[in-house]
């Protein structure tokens, strides 16, 4: 498989997962806002910090008010991490490689983008938001199901899976981070009565509440939820589960030593984490999540170096972005 094709499939999957998880992230914050009493100053600004887009946001908005933040993360086409931009990027990545996947997958990606583009401006209003976010999540899940049910096991599927799992692990840590230092007041006593509520919101936004009840069989408590989301080997959206799948997919590829070693290191961090300590200190949790995200970036870097660039000795022949007029060059005998 061409490196470019592998890279496009990988990014297509990352962007689809990113759109879905951004919808989940907004959903957990919306629910927390509704559930917490007014005297607790929970805001929208941390979502911007969490998605690493402070600079882009402040260039466009003066205040971190609800409408600005939600619009920025859903509908802003100039913001390249918004849901609409992620879906547009997924579509562009698949456009050049659609020949390697069943036609229906391309049609679904195309449809998903067009649907969301049609509804996003209205969808960000508080009344319609929940429904809009659910539709984004459902659309992404449909696509994932279609890939699962129709794409042959092979290189294309492996690179899609690598992209999806890495993005999912990354975004899940960001969702857990909603519960960490940057979001909530430092005084734990004030928080105590609402602790269960907050963790329940996080579980629900990851569609993990029922699975938690079945698995843990205890009332919702911080340390148990954190252990479940970070370390549970069976929950599809747990960090450990994503990393496990990443490791497995890598065994299907040639020359996987370096990326596989990087995945193992990050996985060890997750499995060995002191959950009790993290659960009781928002700042420790936040620092730990930072560390994991650096690990995910390292996994991406080794994947890229091994499979996408893989010509360390040779300078790039061309730059990836081509001008429109040059695309037109060639086939002048056509028509």
């Amino acid at each position: 498989m061409l490196s470019r094709v592998a890279e496009n499939l990988y990014w297509m999957a990352r962007y689809i997962e990113r759109a879905e998880d951004t919808a989940r992230l907004l959903s957990v914050n919306s629910h927390l806002m509704l559930d917490l009493p007014g005297r607790l100053p929970l805001g929208w600004a941390p979502l911007i910090e969490m998605t690493g887009s402070r600079e882009a946001f402040t260039a466009r908005h003066a205040d971190f008010d609800e409408r600005s933040v939600v619009h920025f993360l859903c509908a802003d086409t100039d913001n390249d991490i918004s849901i609409i931009s992620a879906l547009a990027s997924a579509r562009e990545n698949l456009r050049t490689t659609r020949d390697v996947v069943p036609r229906e997958i391309w049609e679904e990606v195309n449809q998903l983008y067009l649907n969301v583009a049609d509804h996003v401006e209205n969808g960000v209003s508080p009344r319609r938001r929940d429904n809009f976010l659910k539709n984004v999540i459902r659309g992404c899940q449909t696509l994932t199901g279609l890939i699962e049910g129709t794409l042959s096991h092979g290189l294309a599927r492996t690179f899609i899976e690598l992209g999806r799992q890495l993005e999912r692990a990354d975004m899940t840590t960001r969702i857990v981070d909603v519960r960490s230092a940057s979001l909530l007041p430092q005084n734990p006593e004030e928080l105590l009565p609402f602790e269960n509520l907050q963790w329940m919101s996080v579980l629900k936004s990851l569609t993990a509440y029922q699975m938690y009840r079945q698995q843990v069989r205890l009332r919702v408590r911080g340390p148990d939820v954190l252990r479940f989301l970070l370390q549970d080997p069976n929950l599809p959206r747990s960090i450990a589960c994503s990393l496990e799948t990443l490791g497995y997919e890598l065994t299907l590829l040639p020359r996987q030593d370096r990326p596989a070693a990087t995945v193992s290191l990050v996985r060890a961090d997750v499995v060995d984490a002191d959950i009790q300590a993290l659960a009781h200190s928002p700042s420790k949790l936040h620092a730990f999540i930072d560390e994991l995200q650096i690990g995910f970036a390292a996994i991406h870097a080794t994947l890229s170096a091994t499979y996408f660039v893989n010509d360390d000795a040779v300078p790039m022949a061309t730059t990836p972005h081509q001008s429109q007029s040059q695309h037109h060059a060639g086939d002048n005998d056509n028509d």
Binding site: L2, R4, T96, A317, T319, H327, D331, N334
Partner: peptide, 29 residues
């Protein structure tokens, strides 16, 4: 030259029918 070329359909079609890779300049070195 890529997807924006007017004959991209044909390039993809011929590559697929011959069972060979469809490459762009950046794929070669």
């Amino acid at each position: 030259p890529g997807i924006y070329n007017s004959a991209y359909f044909e390039h993809a079609y011929l590559a697929q029918q011959m069972g060979v890779e469809l490459v762009q300049g950046s794929d070669l070195v």
